[in-house]
């Protein structure tokens, strides 16, 4: 564990609390992509299957359980409690275009051709692109509530911080995880456009609006 990874994980935690806060205070999940949230459940469940057979640390296990539980809870809130506030007609990204290629990639790129390792690779690739339905929705509506942008920023910062973590680990431990690093760089790259608008508008006190 190093500073960058800890900060990244905390940012990930923060993003989930911001999202829950947004849903609870506005009593609405408007502007949140159900598809992206469902993909996160798939990501966490497939990656954290190792809870059953690998123990890393208490921190690691607690975080894994938290991510699975909170992502399922968010899905529940969107699907049942605040269902009328979710508009599927603007959440139209075709997730099969993500699931299919990620699955094929995981068959090709994995550290061992075993059930759990293939699922692990799949979850890494899927996480990299899971935000696309959300960004697509943002693009369609052209604007977002400020709190939603804070959620997305925290989520983007989380993976961005994993990059210095990997550089640090390379120099201190000689450790390189090419699958996670490649996917992580792609994942962070997807946020660049968003980050640009976030830093130049939202953090200057303006509303998040995309140019028409």
């Amino acid at each position: 564990m190093n500073f960058f990874r800890l900060l990244g994980d905390l940012s990930h935690l923060a993003s989930i609390f911001i999202l829950l806060h947004k849903i609870q205070t506005t009593r609405s999940c408007r502007g949140i992509s159900f598809k992206t949230q469902a993909l996160y459940v798939a990501v966490f469940v497939t990656r954290y299957l190792d809870l059953f057979f690998r123990y890393v640390s208490l921190y690691n296990s607690v975080m894994k359980l938290f991510f699975i539980a909170s992502s399922c809870y968010i899905l529940y809130l969107m699907k049942y409690k605040y269902r009328p506030t979710h508009d599927p007609s603007i959440d139209t990204f075709r997730i099969e275009y993500l699931l299919g290629p990620c699955f094929v990639l995981s068959l090709i790129f994995n550290y061992k051709f075993s059930f759990s390792e293939i699922l692990w690779s799949f979850s890494i690739f899927l996480e990299a692109v899971a935000i696309l339905p959300q960004l697509f929705m943002l693009q369609r509506t052209g604007e977002a509530e400020t709190i939603t942008t804070h959620y997305l920023a925290a989520l983007g910062v989380y993976r961005a911080l994993y990059i210095p973590n990997w550089i640090y680990r390379y120099f201190t431990e000689g450790l390189v995880d090419p699958i996670a690093v490649t996917a992580g760089i792609v994942q962070t790259g997807l946020y660049l456009d968003f980050f640009y608008v976030y830093f130049t508008k939202v953090l200057q006190g303006q509303k998040f609006e995309l140019p028409a």
Partner: peptide
């Protein structure tokens, strides 16, 4: 030395 499938990250 390089053990990529450690999976100790979240």
């Amino acid at each position: 030395q390089v053990s990529p499938s450690n999976h100790d990250e979240l």
